[in-house]
Design a protein around this nucleic acid. Structure first.
Lengths: 184, 184
DNA sequence: TTTTTGATTTACCGATCGGTAAAATAATAT
DNA sequence: ATATTATTTTACCGATCGGTAAATCAAAAA
């Protein structure tokens, strides 16, 4: 009854998918690619996931789970005099440094749902929108006025940086740019 | 000797390609798609262009030609007391409003050349890098210090906005965000 | 008018795509 | 040991991909 070996295989496939979708776009990644990374034959993927789209949706979900956990989760400087926005920004940029994979996956397909109208893609759009709204809320909690447009601009800049080769956009500079936008 | 009807057909195909590559990614666009838009059969494309990659390269070139003409070309407020950076920014955002197609094409594939090492893609990378450098120069000509990273951030933000549905990111807000980054 | 040349289409190729059926394997339950 | 169930593989499918060869059509040259 309780699944046997399957759980580990399923997780391995999902992990392989996350890696693949972080390195190439959804359209460019083939199920064969994912199978190879997971050291598995292609049809086995379909034993655990109904379709490429569903597999991507789960990868998308896990990426956002990781992102939101680290960025909105408990901070080390909790309760200190450090501003909430500063904490958020630090965590966001740390995430960019340490978990580029998730941000890359998101960045590659964050515009896809403007053309794809299927249920899965609309679900992913919602997940993305909610994240941007949460960012807007953090900013609004201090500056008083935070347009969703500004929150979107921030996530776009961080996202773009994630697709650059490492070292191309220094986290320090990135932080500075965003803080300047926050100020007046 | 002087080409007959061909020129117009060639241009129609190239125009169709620009439209197609602006609406979907390189990998998602098929030669069949382009043929349909151009009201032409697929093999005719290969009469004028050696490959999909070469066709895309030409579309890429035209997009940058249009962009650079409008953004670095002669300005209406030339010679006025209006700062050069302001003029550039105005032109850039006007271009975003009026010629979304070019910016979309660029934005969709601006990271492709980090994985594709072919001659064509390296050429396109260079073309993109030159543009960013020109932006950096404009900024440096007034603020004195302009990191290429900041120029890149600006083009990333404008590019991201281009892929959003119209009206999602107001040009005014966008301008404001960039100006704030420019200030101190 | 006939011939030549440029332009366009029809018919097709091998490779790869996402996905399925069914057989083979491996682990558990009886 | 045997039957059952979960897991994995082999073999394949139709559709679509980028691209090619050759036939057809249309316009200019002779």
């Amino acid at each position: 009854m309780a699944t046997r070996m399957g759980n580990k295989t399923r997780q391995a496939i999902l992990e392989a998918a996350r890696e693949a979708f972080a390195s190439k776009s959804y359209a460019e990644v083939s199920m064969e690619d994912i199978a190879k990374i997971a050291h598995v034959k292609k049809p086995l993927i379909y034993y655990y996931f109904p379709s490429k789209e569903d597999l991507f949706k789960e990868a998308w979900d896990e990426a956002f789970r990781d992102l939101e956990d680290k960025v909105f989760g408990p901070k080390e400087e909790e309760g200190k005099y450090v501003r909430k926005v500063k904490q958020f920004l630090r965590a966001y940029i740390d995430f960019l440094r340490n978990d580029r994979k998730s941000l890359r996956l998101i960045e590659r397909e964050k515009n896809k749902f403007y053309s794809e109208k299927s249920k899965n893609w609309q679900y992913m759009k919602k997940r993305y929108d909610v994240f941007v709204q949460q960012v807007a809320d953090v900013i609004a909690s201090e500056t008083g006025n935070s347009s969703p447009e500004f929150a979107r601009a921030i996530t776009d800049i961080v996202g773009s940086s994630a697709l650059l080769p490492e070292g191309q956009m220094s986290p320090k500079t990135l932080e500075l740019i965003i803080i300047k936008g926050l100020k007046p």
